[in-house]
Nucleic acid binder design. Structure first.
Lengths: 357, 357
DNA sequence: GAAAAATGTGTGTTCGCAAACATTTATTTT
DNA sequence: AAAATAAATGTTTGCGAACACACATTTTTC
């Protein structure tokens, strides 16, 4: 076992130069004769030099500033989780000179997003993590960050126009497909299934469509034509209007036995069905919000698919720093697993373990 | 914001001693006057000194030897995953002087285990990770390790006689309970449910009983007396015998619509049912073995509960080193989430295992 | 062709801590 | 009270890399 670690000194010795010269090559600081550089590079490869990141972290006083641009959780508690994931990731990385600054915007106001994004640009960070809720508004920023070579990681919402360092999220299509399975598995007879979109920021539209497609494809690909899928766009400007819409749907479709809610708002439908004492309808929805958990625990919601927002946050920072600090290759796309949550296993997901994922 | 990090020097300065003395106090190396020690300890606390683990790792040439005592995967491919998890964990920790040595034993031969455990003891490691398959045989080792103050972490199989540093695994009772839910959710009418134990090493007995209890309790606690639960101990000395047992069960109980297999052997039953062209039976089993995945993908097995063996390995080493190297508090018990795996989300759980391979 | 600028290379210090080593101070022995 | 010993404390080195700086050599400029 010859696992003596190769150091810069060893390289310098072999190349008959000083450590400083090797260092210059390693950091591409220039000022090295081409011939020497070439030789050093060759020896570096030959000896399989791996920098000791511990020593590097200690010696380098470089601070890595990472900007995190996400909605304020006071508008939507969903955003608490990614923040928590990022903070967890940070804990283990701050010793490597990582500094994270959060920029919270109002997810319902494009200008708020733009303002904060401008702030980010002004602060000139080394890397950026964001969820690009406002598609149109974010594009110029992508362009500018690309130009100044600031890597940015997207999570939760995908945008294909510009290539980020990495995208972390879930496969929406497949999650819809999975929802199809979960609904179907619980149904005994042909019936109507309600596919409910809730009004959301338009940013989500692409996601929701993919979920819908996946869901429908589950039924068509498995030859389950006996199920009637009823699609509905539901809004909730106020309680009365919402109930009106629901009454309308359920009175005209008495045979609804399953509901798939493509957003995190399944608790609204659960609440309605509880109110009406309808108990033989299976609901599948998304996200472990407190309200959803309530109806999961009282058996109104059958399953929740976890979008793992905390994990998304964790991995966003992890991948960004893998690139930034450790100079590793990072995958362009990281899909987190589709976690199936039900009353009987939900507890293990509330206190979550991220790293093993 | 004065977040200048406090170093040993700062402490030394304030205590009017030298860094060496502070170091001695920190490492309990003795040779410090009681009064001075007290004072330093006070100041340490006052200034909230946190050692810089980076500098520590760089400076200290201490090697942490960890012994991993697990079955050889050639006997049971299940054990590939924990090994992979440990290796993944190791990757990030070897820079801190961590060295892992594996000791593989034959899970069907107690003496093989004892031999390897002796080897472990002889090598005098700083910490031990093991799955205590042979209950009776492992106890003397626990005693000796306790005496020599070598922390050991158990995973996969719990033993309550001695307190380990930590136990990592799954809540068997709750996983049985979850299986009950998954079976029940997929059934439309009263029927018979087969609860199948496969012969395994006796070490698993306690686990299997807990799963059985959880499963049964799901039905009793939810007032589902209309389901008849038929328990069977199945052996597989050879194929003919196995088929005989199965024929016997299914011919005498034509109304079996669900099967819960408490071990990783659900593929055996799936294979049988495939052979017999019985397609209306839901199977729930454990573990993502290749054979199980095959029947999951062809819709014979409905759900697999993932015991997350890779995660168990990962966390075993993580917690052990948290204690050993970073001197952190570690939980005595860590339950990993109960992952519900079905054909439609299985891919996200397999890829991970490839990553580290 | 001499001064100035650019390029190439080596040296020394720093990061915070661990641990060996060196020195001072206190205590015991005779 | 001097010598011997033990206890307490101080000093130094080095872990591996980053980087500032010094110096030497070459190239450019007018």
């Amino acid at each position: 076992m010859n696992d003596k670690t190769i150091t810069i000194k060893d390289i310098a010795l072999k190349a008959k130069v000083s450590a400083g010269t090797v260092d210059r090559v390693l950091h591409k600081r220039g000022k090295v004769a081409p011939k020497v550089e070439e030789k050093i590079l060759r020896i570096l490869k030959e000896m399989e030099y791996e920098p000791n990141i511990i020593a590097r972290a200690l010696s380098s006083k470089k601070k890595y500033k990472v900007a995190v641009l996400i909605p304020d959780e006071s508008y939507d508690s969903y955003w608490f989780a990614p923040k928590a994931g990022i903070k967890k990731s940070l804990k283990e990385l701050k010793q490597f000179g990582l500094e994270v600054k959060f920029y919270f915007f109002d997810p319902y106001t494009a200008s708020s997003f733009v303002d904060k994004a401008k702030e980010v640009s002004l602060d000139n960070p080394d890397g950026i993590i964001l969820t690009p809720i406002f598609h149109r508004e974010v594009l110029p920023f992508f362009e500018s960050w690309k130009k100044s070579e600031i890597p940015f990681v997207l999570f939760n919402t995908e945008i294909s126009d510009f290539e980020p360092l990495s995208y972390i999220g879930q496969d929406s299509y497949q999650s819809g497909y999975l929802a199809g399975k979960l609904i179907h598995y619980g149904l005994s007879e042909p019936c109507t299934i309600l596919l409910a979109h809730f009004d959301e920021e338009t940013s989500n539209a692409a996601h929701l469509e993919k979920k819908e497609l996946g869901f429908k494809n589950y039924f068509s690909q498995n030859n389950l034509q006996q199920y009637d899928i009823l699609k509905a766009e539901i809004t909730r400007p106020n309680y009365a209007s919402f109930v009106g819409q629901m009454d309308n749907i359920f009175e005209n479709n008495p045979n609804i036995k399953g509901v798939f809610v493509t957003t995190s708002k399944s608790f609204e439908i659960a609440s309605y069905l509880n109110q009406k004492h309808i108990h033989d309808v299976n609901i599948i929805g998304y996200d472990l919000l407190a309200k959803n958990l309530h109806y999961l625990k009282n058996n109104t919601i059958s399953f929740l698919i976890n979008q793992n927002p905390k994990g998304q946050g964790f991995w966003s920072l992890k991948l960004l720093t893998d690139k930034l600090i450790f100079n590793k290759e990072v995958p362009l796309l990281k899909y987190l697993p589709l976690d199936i949550i039900t009353k009987e296993n939900v507890n293990y997901f509330i206190e979550e373990d991220l790293e093993s994922a």
